Amino acid sequence: MSAVSLLICDDSSLARKQLLRALPADWPLDISQANGGREALEKIREGDIDVLLLDLTMPDVDGYQVLAALREEKLSCQVVVISADIQVEAVRRVLELGALAFIRKPADPAYLQQTLAGLGIAGGEVPVLQHRGTGAIPFRDAFREVVNVAMGRAAALLARVLGVFVQLPIPNVNILEVGELHMALADAAQGDKLSAVCQGYIGGGIAGEALLIFHDSEIADMARLMRADDYLELEMLLDLSSLLISACLSGIADQIDVVFSQGHPQVLGQHASIDELISVNRQRWKNTLAVEISYSLEGHDIHFDLLLLFTEDSVELLNRKLAYLMN
């Protein structure tokens, strides 16, 4: 049996590694990798790519654009989308654009193998007897992919509640001191007045605070989406924050095998500037592992920023939890 040429396209080195490990070494596959949509299209245009395993959320050319280009240019390639964006609308769109199947991240190896075999792409009932060779993954890359999966689950819940399509970003993961955090928040605010809700969490020795930042100019539109005419603006912000923060933390906890206990959401500042928010919390945010996720709602001028601020002591524990993914 001749080898099937298979291309893995994902900007996450961890996601590519997980897919490599999920493909049985006994299968006759000629595997190559691309770390973004532009590189994937270049490889496909060169010819000889039979199968593409495609992520959706990527910084240069995203998965939707890759699928559209394949159709427009009539490029022959079978596509299976593997993504953390599990919104019903996301699945509908990629299948409409020509993908043969959709698999949620992190891909279950058995399900991936069954999907490929069912499509006649490769293999059959072949066990994973050994992993294909993969290198070590840096902590920041590994944790970013864990957050990416959690972010997608939270977006799917938000989409159902609001009846919208949530546009997902590439999450930012950085170690920040308070001055750098100030600059990151100021950039997110872009001069607007803000309202922010904070919720603490702890589990397995890992602790931190989640901070959800709303732009005051968009809160009225958000209230209309949530049909919140019959209750207070503050209650709406607390309800939305609790939903989004809980879903995101639950997605992270599931992947690193911990259970987070969460405090009650509290208003950190309302109709305040970034300078005021920072000054109130300067002591708590001296040095932190900061995760930034900027959600926006398609068809609406609404976006909000979720920050997960892990304590400095949590980084080593997270490293240990992610060791099995990184090595």
Score class of each variant (00 low, 15 high):
Q190N: 12
Q190D: 12
Q190I: 06
Q190F: 07
G191I: 10
G191W: 10
D192Q: 09
D192L: 03
L194P: 06
L194T: 04
L194F: 04
S195C: 09
S195H: 07
S195N: 07
A196P: 10
V197T: 07
C198G: 14
C198T: 12
Q199W: 09
Q199H: 08
G200M: 06
G200N: 14
Y201V: 09
Y201P: 08
Y201H: 13
Y201Q: 11
Y201I: 00
I202N: 06
I202E: 09
I202S: 15
G203F: 04
G204P: 06
G204R: 06
G205P: 00
G205H: 01
I206T: 03
I206L: 04
I206S: 02
A207M: 09
A207D: 04
G208P: 11
G208Q: 06
E209R: 15
E209M: 10
E209K: 09
E209Y: 05
A210Q: 08
A210D: 02
A210V: 00
A210T: 03
L211A: 06
L211E: 08
L211G: 02
L212K: 02
L212E: 01
I213Y: 05
I213M: 14
F214D: 02
F214W: 12
F214E: 06
H215E: 03
H215M: 00
H215K: 12
H215L: 04
D216V: 08
D216F: 01
D216A: 02
S217I: 11
I219E: 07
I219R: 05
A220S: 14
A220C: 02
A223G: 13
R224F: 11
R224H: 11
R224G: 01
L225V: 04
L225S: 11
L225P: 09
M226P: 00
M226V: 03
M226R: 08
M226W: 09
M226F: 15
R227N: 14
R227W: 01
R227M: 12
R227Q: 14
A228L: 05
A228C: 09
D229N: 15
D229K: 15
D230Q: 13
Y231E: 10
Y231A: 04
L232T: 10
L232K: 09
E233V: 13
E233M: 13
L234I: 12
L234M: 10
L234H: 01
E235M: 09
E235C: 04
E235Y: 08
E235G: 03
E235N: 15
M236A: 06
M236Q: 08
L237K: 10
L237V: 01
L238M: 06
L238N: 05
L238H: 05
L238G: 02
D239L: 11
D239V: 12
D239Q: 15
L240T: 10
L240C: 13
L240M: 15
S241Y: 02
S241P: 01
S241Q: 05
S242G: 15
L243W: 00
L243F: 00
L243Y: 04
L243V: 09
L244P: 03
I245K: 01
S246V: 02
A247Y: 01
A247D: 06
A247P: 05
A247T: 00
C248G: 09
C248S: 13
C248V: 14
C248D: 08
L249Y: 05
